[in-house]
Design a protein around this nucleic acid. Structure first.
Length: 595
DNA sequence: ATAGGGTTAG
């Protein structure tokens, strides 16, 4: 067959024009007519190929696809790489989950293309093979095809780069990118987005700057990644800069719904909920992302009424709420303890809006009940909910046990969590904290032993602050490496004395170590958010709010410290912890001590 | 023909 195919392909090279998209019926009829021929000559092979391709184009189900597949073999067309490649594409487009049938097709395609060296010379087939392996999570085979291809284009590279970013292997992705001879906008964007999606926002922003210096164009997809990076970092200065860049490229938030929605999220996560709302208001078109981002923005700022009101406005429009929208509404209730409202929304979401609650929604409900102190009700709901509770659900319960100091329920939650997420360090730390504040030091040391046994290390507390110049200064707990470290300590000492004069007492139970009181006091004063606050006072200009970002939940002692400092200095302090914002002003916090 | 996309509770 191979020999015949090659002979004919040199002897008769003219192929008649065949429209690509025929109706299913016509394609099928033509195929049947061609069935009469016992031996496929080149032109007829070409015709068959086109017919099969158009059949695949019109394919709307797995059954049809399998029929076409069978026909490929019946007609001896298994060497037509294009048809096989198309078959794989169609499987992907149909969204068929990777099962044994799909693997069978993959193996056949690979075997045939190996046989005739298809992917060595044909870019489309090679790229399809890479994509195919990537889609079934066999990156190694994808890489092998890539390495064996004689010619590669930027698409081959980008497919593989993206595959590496999706597995979190940014090093391999970066190596590939560096070796890419001609980098286009899509390839650059893949890297920027890859960093953003792998929680490396700083690298994402650096890459975007490099991209701009290289004179590469920017479009809305690139911006989406960059904006997401800014949101993660929460840096207001970059946020403004990115908006400038966007508007210069004609992709401002007013006219572009993707850019606008991402910016709503970005500004609210930078602490500028007012700017977020301004963007929202100014947008010409709003979709479910836009509304959900805004509702979530209100939620993390503790503005539950605004979130509810916006939700009510939303359901009057054409835009239907989805899963994420309800996460936002429930989170809003949770952050202020609106238990009854939350329960009502939860009960209506399926009945009125057709959104079936999933594990994440239950996690919100457990969080809502737990935060409000209804720990037993929360436990009961966890045990009776219709879907199997995932880590988030038990995690919410564990978090509630920390707030309300309930080591017994905490143990139940933790035992599930250690099964479901054995490597998630945060769970062990929270349990340690709960036992520590109950004075159960033996239990604390058991948990620490368990962690050591698994080779887990504490996730260090880290805070950062954006200086006047837009530089990001990062502080770890107990950090003395900052060049202005001694000044920082001086500021803290001064603040501590003045607060003590007002009756402030350090909350020693916030320390999860069994050490002396003096050591505890020292540990508390070296918490990263306090270091960042002191540096903020040294650096920033007066009358502007001080914005601090933190990777973990703010501790009780730091919370009360911030309250006091906001009173002393007469300035607003905004702290973003891992879940929400705290606006400290004149001695009180926007969370009303409920967080 | 084939590559990059914004929001998600603990």
């Amino acid at each position: 067959m191979v020999a015949i195919f090659r002979n004919f392909s040199t002897a008769r090279s003219s192929v008649q024009y065949i429209p690509r998209r025929l109706s299913l019926y016509a394609a099928d009829r033509d195929l049947r007519r061609l069935d009469g021929n016992s031996f496929p000559f080149f032109d007829e092979r070409k015709q068959l190929e086109s017919r099969l391709v158009s059949l695949l184009d019109g394919c709307d189900g797995l059954v049809q696809l399998k029929q076409v597949h069978a026909r490929v073999y019946r007609k001896g067309l298994e060497q037509c790489c294009y048809v096989l490649a198309k078959l794989v594409r169609t499987l992907n487009e149909l969204g068929v989950p990777v099962d044994s049938y799909q693997r069978l097709v993959f193996r056949q395609v690979h075997a045939q293309t190996m046989l005739i060296g298809g992917f060595c010379s044909d870019l489309y087939v090679g790229n399809t093979l890479i994509g195919m392996y990537v889609s079934c999570c066999d990156l190694g085979s994808g890489r092998k095809v890539f390495d064996e291809m004689l010619h590669r284009d930027v698409i081959s590279w980008t497919t593989l780069i993206v595959a590496y970013t999706k597995t979190g292997d940014m090093v391999s992705a970066g190596d590939l990118f560096d070796g890419l001879p001609v980098k286009d906008m899509v390839a650059w964007t893949a890297m920027v987005t890859g960093f953003a999606q792998n929680a490396k926002p700083r690298e994402a922003l650096q890459f975007f700057k490099r991209m701009q210096d290289a004179g590469v164009e920017t479009d809305e997809v690139t911006l989406a990644g960059v904006i997401s990076a800014c949101a993660q970092l929460g840096v207001a200065k970059y946020a403004k800069w990115v908006q400038d860049v966007a508007e210069k490229s004609g992709l401002g938030p007013t006219d572009n719904v993707v850019v606008g929605s991402a910016m709503v999220d970005m500004y609210s996560k930078c602490g500028n909920i007012e700017d977020a709302y301004l963007i929202f208001k100014g947008m010409k078109e709003r979709n479910v992302y836009t509304y959900s981002s805004m509702i979530l923005g209100f939620a993390i700022h503790g503005l539950a009424q605004a979130a509810m009101q916006l939700f009510n406005e939303m359901v009057e429009t054409e835009t239907k709420p989805n899963k994420v929208t309800f996460i936002g509404v429930l989170a809003a209730c949770s952050h202020v303890g609106m238990v009854d409202q939350g329960k009502r929304v939860f009960s209506l979401m399926e009945k009125h809006y057709g959104v079936v609650p999933d594990g994440d929604h239950y996690a919100c409900m457990i969080d809502l009940l737990g935060r409000a102190g209804h720990l037993n009700e929360a436990l009961k709901l966890t045990e009776t909910m219709p879907v199997k509770p995932h880590g988030g659900v038990w995690g919410a319960l564990l978090g509630a046990c920390r707030i309300h100091r309930n080591p017994d329920i905490a143990q139940i939650a933790a035992s599930h969590l250690f099964e479901l997420e054995p490597h998630a360090i945060g769970n062990y730390m929270v349990l340690c904290n709960i036992f520590a504040s109950a004075g159960r030091w033996d239990d604390v040391s058991d948990v620490r032993k368990l962690m050591r046994g698994k080779g887990l290390k504490k996730n260090p507390g880290c805070s950062w602050f954006e200086s006047k110049e837009g530089e990001i200064h990062e502080f770890f707990a107990g950090d003395t490496k900052h060049p202005r470290s001694s000044e920082i300590n001086g500021v803290l000492e001064d603040l501590l004395q003045r607060l003590k004069g007002l009756g402030y007492q350090q909350i020693l139970s916030s320390v999860a170590y069994d050490v002396s009181e003096d050591v505890k006091k020292g540990i508390l004063m070296a918490h990263s958010e306090k270091l960042a606050l002191a540096f903020g006072l040294l650096d920033s200009s007066a009358n502007r709010p001080i914005r601090i970002m933190k990777n973990l939940r703010i501790c009780e002692d730091c919370h009360s410290f911030m309250c006091g400092v906001s009173h002393i200095i007469g300035r607003e302090i905004i702290v973003r912890d891992n879940v929400r914002f705290h606006h400290f002003n004149g001695g009180t916090c926007s969370c009303g001590n409920f967080w």
